[in-house]
Amino acid sequence: MREKMLLTVVALALAAGISPASAKEWKTVRFGMDASYAPFESVDTKGDIIGFEVDYGKALCEKMKVTCTFQNQDWDGIIPSLLAGKFDVIFSSMNITAERKKKVIFSDMYYATPIGFAAQASNKSNDFSPEALKGKSIGTQSSTIHANYLEKYYKNSDVKLYPTQDEPNLDLASGRLDYVLGDLLVEEDFINNKGNGCCRIVGEIKRDPEIHGPGVGAAFRPDDTDLRDMFNKAIAETDANGTYDKIQGKYFKKSIRGK
């Protein structure tokens, strides 16, 4: 009976053109990314994913001697998709938080960047306290640390959540939003490269350790501790031999490595 069911499942799988992923022995590692986060990851005109985390991820794969593939996945579904086995690692500017640790395990932190508010260029106020932003519309990406931060501290503002970070930026540029909360490097990239000076950075927020955690790490399924260990080893190696600095130098003026 069991054999028969097994056969049916396998036959179904084959009929649907599904390839069983290689078991345990890691030869290929599939990266999941939300490619709407330049300069960390975005899509170029050919549809390929480019950015700091792609270059860095490739460097890690070289160290680990595995082939890697990169998949684009909307942020809202990125943890469910990892858990559902649609890829093996989330390598997408995901901050290491207690909330997420309930679902996934993280590698060591591999970068930490300032977080803050952007506003329209015409807005001259530098006060971004919850009182000052009362009744103002603030946009950010849903299911992020930024969304959680706004929910905790900016209860009296009109918080709008978007599927990607690009979308609140567009709405800030058009004036639909008064403020956007996000990674300041991403906001700067948008303002300089796409926003045509529409907007400006207002200031950096103080990290709330409960919400923000120490920085960004790679996330894995809880069972894949071996893969996490491989990543940790590779991260340390790229730190030691200068590869990390070489790659980040291509994208950033200041070091983002963090401690």
Binding site: R2, M5, L6, V9, A13, A16, I18, S19, P20, A21, A23, Q71, A84, G85, K86
Partner: peptide
């Protein structure tokens, strides 16, 4: 439940 060792995965 069937104790399959291979992981079956649906592409997008």
């Amino acid at each position: 439940a069937l104790q399959l060792t291979t992981h079956i995965e649906l592409g997008p």
